[in-house]
Amino acid sequence: MRVLHVITGLDAGGAEHQLRLLLPRLPVECEVVTLSHPGVVAGAIRAGGTVVHELTMRGNRDVTVVPRLVRLIRRGGFDLVHTHLYRACVYGRVAARLAGVPAVATEHSLGDGVIEGHRTSAGVRALYLTTERLGRMTIAVSGAVTGRLLAWGVPAHRITVIPNGIDPGEFRFDPRLRDATRAELGVTPDVPVVGAVGRMVAGKRFDLLVQALPALPGTVLLLVGGGPAVPALRACATRLGVADRVIITGETAGTREWYCAMDLFVSPSPRETFGLTVLEALASGLPAVYACCPALDDVPAGGSWRRIDRPAALPGALAAGLDRGGARLPVPAVVGHYDIARAARSVADLYQRIAPRVGEGIAP
Rank of each mutant, 00 (worst) to 15 (best):
H157E: 15
V141R: 08
V145H: 06
R136I: 04
A156T: 06
N164M: 14
I159Y: 01
R133Y: 07
G153A: 10
R172N: 00
R158W: 04
Y128I: 00
I139H: 08
I162L: 14
I162Y: 09
N164L: 15
L127Y: 00
T130N: 00
D167T: 15
I166F: 08
P175D: 10
T138N: 06
A140W: 01
T130S: 10
N164E: 15
A140F: 04
L149N: 02
D167I: 12
L149H: 02
V145S: 08
E170A: 15
T160E: 08
A151H: 12
L134F: 10
D174R: 03
E170L: 15
P155N: 11
T138R: 10
L129S: 10
I166T: 03
M137W: 04
T130I: 10
S142Y: 03
R158Y: 06
A151I: 08
A151D: 09
G165W: 03
I139P: 01
L149D: 04
F171C: 06
L127T: 09
L127R: 08
I159P: 00
I166K: 02
T160V: 15
I166D: 00
V145L: 13
A144C: 04
V141H: 05
A140H: 03
T146A: 03
H157N: 14
A140C: 12
Y128Q: 02
A140E: 03
Y128K: 03
F173T: 03
F173I: 07
I166Y: 05
M137A: 04
P168Y: 12
W152N: 01
G169A: 13
S142H: 05
Y128H: 11
S142R: 08
E170K: 15
R136Y: 03
V145E: 01
